[in-house]
Amino acid sequence: MTAVPQPAAAREEQTQAIGAAHAAPATLRPVMPAWAGRAASRLGFTLLSVGLFCALWELLWALGISDPRLLPPPHVFLGNFPEQAKFFNTAQRWQVGVGLNTGPSPAGAVMITIAASAARVFAGLLIASTLSITIGVLVRYYVAVEKLALPTITLLSPVSPIAWLPVAIFLFGIGDAPAIFMVVVALFFHMVLATISQIDGVNRNFINVACTMGATKFQIYARVIIPAILPGLLMVLRLNLLGAWMVVLVAESTGVGYGLGQVIMLARNTFNPSLVFFTIALIGVLGFASDWTLRVVQKRILYWVPETTGVLRGL
């Protein structure tokens, strides 16, 4: 910009404009609170990140590098929703007396399938975490429990969930129960061991303080050890939530009424890559949403844990 002498009036106008720009955020604030702005920016970056990935994929397709019959790009497998949706919730469509074209709407069918899988994941997660945290605490509370249970738990913890699949079918046949069992068994052993190591990591001083104040063993566990391990446990829970989503697909692919795993299996058997990728996209969104939910819960319960991400970003 060259320094052209300006008339006084124009200069005044400019300073006024600057003043207005400064005042603008103050008037905007009631419309859009700070947290909403942060959430919007985070969502924006999520979309951008996914968008870039999809764009790359589309580009490879447009250049003819990737074969659309094997790796159909997003606009193909997301484009024809009713076509994809007719593979969902097949159970109800195959019921006796139900015509091929009746049954839930395409969106309804997808929702039912999603809800079925999500319910299995959360039921399994709930059972696994309740069981494993209880047993983990009992192992440290009673030496007898440690001696009797810990060796077996340690022995079984490296067994892959796949190996449990026949066991699930022997025990529970077909339906919701084996799928939930698979989720539980995949998470239980690791979560017990994680709980124990969390307990062992509790700051000795916390326990000593409670001791000098005359706390009983029960009080020390209830008032000090449990709150002290809660942050670690919720982190373990979040990591295992993603594990639960992986296992539930394996379990469902063996044939339960309906579920995302079954759709994937169907897609594989009928060689339908579009359906595979459509389902993968659904699972990704679901995993993301459930992790986000758990993170909100985590922040609610762990009001005392300071936020460190901001500090790390600043490095």
Binding site: N205, N208, V209, C211, T212, M213, G214, L230, W304, V305
Partner: peptide, 17 residues
């Protein structure tokens, strides 16, 4: 340990929760 004898530790030991 007894509540009659209080120990203030070398490191801070307040319960953060």
């Amino acid at each position: 340990p007894s509540p009659d004898r209080s120990l203030i530790f070398q490191e801070t030991s307040l319960f953060p929760w």
